[in-house]
Design a protein around this nucleic acid. Structure first.
Ligand SMILES: [Mn+2]
Ligand SMILES: [Mn+2]
Ligand SMILES: [Zn+2]
Ligand SMILES: [Zn+2]
Lengths: 140, 140
DNA sequence: AAAATATTTGCAACTTAGTTGCAAATTTGG
DNA sequence: CCAAATTTGCAACTAAGTTGCAAATATTTT
């Protein structure tokens, strides 16, 4: 039983010219299913039975970062958070919202911030990310 | 010899109703002098002779965060970065730029991003921060 | 479908960033 | 100066991430 997600993951790896391994497929599937940036721990948690060493998870995320399949979201917590780059443009990722009360982070995928592209005082901007803080619907 | 900066730091602590201690004054002075967000290590480095335990620095930064004198900037590196909140509005901090080539982070203090305030799908936005990636003048 | 090659994996050991408890030192207000 | 409140340094600890290396797996070649 090779699911839809499974195929999608394999396809993604293939087009990125990455070795298609069980670990990578598993990590990608976890990220496909997620609706928010995940840490290594959260990914490992999702995998459950299908366990891979945390070093492998980190190395997988690093490969996926390098080919641009995932990117890093900046979250208030200490650990790095990763998510698929899929529904972000080349130059801009959807904003993230961190609640100052409950601490949870949400993706504001339907929100577009105006882009600052090009140059500013000699800085060539390739990509921008926005972070919000405030109160989430549950805490407001 | 009690310098200008020294007085400014003491004044800041006083208005924040924080105990005015040597460590806090030293940390504040380092932040006043800095033109970019600093880590605990960088602050300790600045202090040189005038040494304080890293635990003290972290606890000082925590106090300064709580009263809003400093805030945290989100930088690509692993360590937390702090800077004065001074020339940021209540709701928005100036953007930060991280160079993908040399890795350095710069404050774009003269750049204003349009504010997304109020509510979005039930999220009450209090503050926003923008991060850019690209090439700095030195690397372009 | 083997064999040869290239890449990834798990393990254990390590580093780096940050935290905690507690007694001693410092600051503040009277 | 005293008493109360708060901060400090130390040592020990946790959490997040990294490194080297031999064994395992994936891809390419024959
Ligand atoms: Mn997201
Ligand atoms: Mn700044
Ligand atoms: Zn909340
Ligand atoms: Zn640069």
């Amino acid at each position: 039983m090779r699911s839809d997600l499974d195929l999608k993951a394999r396809q993604t790896l293939k087009s990125a010219k990455l070795y298609c391994t069980a670990g990578r497929v598993a990590v990608l599937k976890a990220l496909f299913k997620a609706d928010k940036p995940l840490t290594q721990e959260e990914i490992t948690g999702q995998l459950g039975q299908n366990h891979f060493d945390k070093v492998t998870i980190y190395r997988t995320l690093e490969s996926l970062l390098k080919v641009g399949v995932v990117h890093q979201a900046f979250v208030k917590n200490r650990a790095r958070h990763f998510e698929l780059s899929h529904n972000c443009s080349e130059t801009q990722c959807h904003p993230h919202f961190t609640c100052t009360s409950c601490g949870k982070t949400h993706c504001l995928t339907d929100m577009r911030m105006p882009k600052a592209q090009g140059r500013h005082r000699g800085f060539i901007i390739h990509r921008q990310q926005t972070r919000f803080e405030g109160l989430c619907p549950a805490c407001a």
